[in-house]
Simulated scan of single mutants.
Amino acid sequence: MNRLTKEQRLQIVQIYFENNGSVREVYRKLRPFYGRHNRPSEQLIRLTMDRFRTTFTLCDNTHPQRRRTVRTEETIAAVEQSVEEDPNESIRHRAQQLELCPSTLWKILRKDLGLRPYKIQLVQELKPRDHAMRRDFGVWAENEIDLDADFHRKILFSDEAHFWLNGYVNKQNCRIWSEENPHETLETPLHPQKLTVWCALWAGGVIGPYFFRNNAGESVTVNGDRYRAMITDYFVPELDGMNVDELWFQQDGATCHTAHVTIDLLKETFDERIISRNGPVNWPPRSCDLTPLDYFLWGYVKSLVYANKPETLGDLEANIRGVIANIRPHMLEKVVENWTCRIGLIRASRGGHMPEIIFKR
């Protein structure tokens, strides 16, 4: 017999004290009420008395005492002070510290204090010298825009990105609903396949994508020789029919971009209209927030190319080509106009990060 009613427990307590605390005597005297086989065991009698002596009650008390749930002025003030001292504490831990029900704490935080949970935003680390270089670039760009209102529309921004074939697999968002664990697994290679893609973006469109491959047609990463071959064999021919004399070319400070032989090759097409480290106009390091490909193109493309779960590099390449081909001119107009806003914000932040962009809602 595992459970007893309150009346049965009371009967055990009464008999126990009437017989000088003898568990054996209680067990014997309960026989007329339960019969030989249904009466409580001596162990159950002993446990019942132990609980009675400890809790002074005959009722079950299997749950801890409920925490305070009243939203009083004192409770709200305590929560407010707790948040001021440590705004990073989780609701669960803070509720334990303040001895509050988590749901009550949540109501106080949201309804009484008007607070919201915000995530920490990750930004590119800036070195001490970067601020001045970013600020100087912002001053130069604004001066050029003052001289030519369409200057920002004449810059070819360029960059590379890696697209991994298994990029769509996300364990955090992958759930299998089942009555039993299906023990589902997914094999992933030690070195997953990828494509290295180059594009140039400007107000007039997107040049690319260009896929870096070796002579065997296999995907490879970028080095100086491959980058210069891309410029000579692909990029310059793609400029045919465009008024190159008015266009500027921008690239970041990757080593394969900034070798003197590479800069000299670019000068054959763009003369002094090059924005690059080691170039006529210096591009500030660690400034992905100023490159339209980083703050728009790559994120936009990657958000779409994995929708149908490509299984081969050929499928992935086709998806990349399709997404880029479908980018509409009005989107690029907005992206380039946004670049001019960022230039102004760089000056306002004295070359630092741009809170207006980072925390835009």
Rank of each mutant, 00 (worst) to 15 (best):
F52T: 04
R53Y: 12
R53C: 09
T54H: 14
T54E: 15
T55Y: 12
F56D: 13
F56T: 09
T57W: 03
T57E: 05
T57H: 00
L58Y: 00
L58E: 01
D60N: 06
D60L: 03
D60Q: 07
D60C: 03
N61K: 15
N61Q: 15
T62G: 05
T62E: 09
H63P: 00
H63K: 14
H63G: 00
P64M: 04
P64R: 11
Q65G: 06
Q65R: 15
R67Q: 09
R67M: 06
R68I: 03
T69G: 07
T69D: 01
T69P: 01
T69R: 12
R71V: 01
T72G: 02
T72S: 15
E73V: 09
E74K: 13
E74M: 05
E74I: 09
T75R: 10
T75W: 03
I76K: 08
A77N: 08
A77G: 03
A78S: 14
V79H: 06
V79W: 07
V79D: 05
V79T: 09
V79P: 06
E80W: 07
Q81H: 10
S82C: 15
V83Q: 07
E84Y: 12
E84L: 14
E84F: 12
E84R: 15
E85I: 13
D86R: 13
N88Y: 11
N88T: 15
N88C: 08
E89A: 09
S90L: 03
S90A: 04
I91N: 02
R94Q: 11
R94Y: 02
A95F: 03
A95R: 02
Q96F: 09
Q97A: 13
Q97I: 11
L98M: 12
L98C: 10
L98W: 10
L100A: 08
L100N: 07
C101R: 00
C101A: 13
P102G: 02
P102Y: 01
P102V: 04
